[in-house]
Design a protein around this nucleic acid. Sequence first.
DNA 1: GACGCGTGGCG
DNA 2: TCGCCAAGCGT
Length: 352
Amino acid sequence: MTSASPDTILLAWYDRNHRHLPWRSPPDTYANPYHVWLSEIMLQQTTVAAVRPYYLTFLSRWPTVEALAAADDGDVMAAWAGLGYYARARNLLSCARIIVRDHDGHFPGTEQALLTLPGIGAYTAAAIASIAFGQRAVVVDGNVERVMARLHAVTDPLPGAKKHLRTLADALTPQQRCGDYAQAVMDLGATLCSPRSPNCQICPWVSLCKGYHQGIAAELPYKTAKTKRPGRYGTVFWITDPEGTVLLRQRPPRGLLGGMTEIPSTPWQEAPWTLEDSTPHAPIQGETWHTIAGTVHHTFSHFDLELKVIAGTVAQTGNIAGRWVKPEHFDKEALPSVMRKVIRHMQKQDTS
DNA sequence: GACGCGTGGCG
DNA sequence: TCGCCAAGCGT
């Protein structure tokens, strides 16, 4: 007798257990390339739970790549606000406009062509090519790396082991049902073969899994130690006019929170700010500042931030660089989470 | 290849 | 409270 191949075993598991996600199509069908692309960009380093509402909002507001390409930049950034990694939103718009301008509104169907588009790297190109176009492509994300490391008991640490893990993933990738297979491995990693406590007992691959048989599956993949997150400090200037309108401004188009709306602030430096050092950075001078009690803490990918807030009022809003926005219109702004924390902090002051 | 780039949830 | 983690990409 012959035993089923690993990919056949996994696909059978997927047919029984696949999750219903808004961007997915039924097994054995090709999904809409626009849907696959939009979801894959949002899912980069981001959980399904976080993506779901954003995906539904985007698809509702911009149902096609043509609609997205025609969208206003500020509307797209505002709709992305809170999801993080804002370069993805800038690249999303840029990519949509290239698709419409150079590709007649159709996504290319090969990995090689997809790779030339902004925001689409090795993983996303392979995902779109396989899931939306049925091409054989080796899809390697964090899930696949973890599953391969466990299945083959790879003990060399990441990121050094990446090339080896890709080779192992390539060897397992079938010629048929390529999109379903890609989603199946990722589903396996996201549900059973999870980072902390894998559910090996009901895993379709348990009998093949070297990591399981060596008793080290849950520990894999090993990773090289990370350095501790440094701390940074800033002072935010909460400036209002007599009617409670607040001074906002735009951040530079690239870099941290690039293109997003901010509340004016000192630079974010390694040492705490004194009041005297802070105020020269304010958008207005000669102000009487009122220190707001407490601090706002926020963790970015590569540093921890602690913000103090000082408040001031101006009689006239003219001749000050920035935009004056009423609080009831904040929800239309491209305000990242750290700035919404500052706003919440100020609203707590009002009610206490 | 290393680093910059967000956020929220979870053990 | 804290470190880890998520369907990575661009430079």
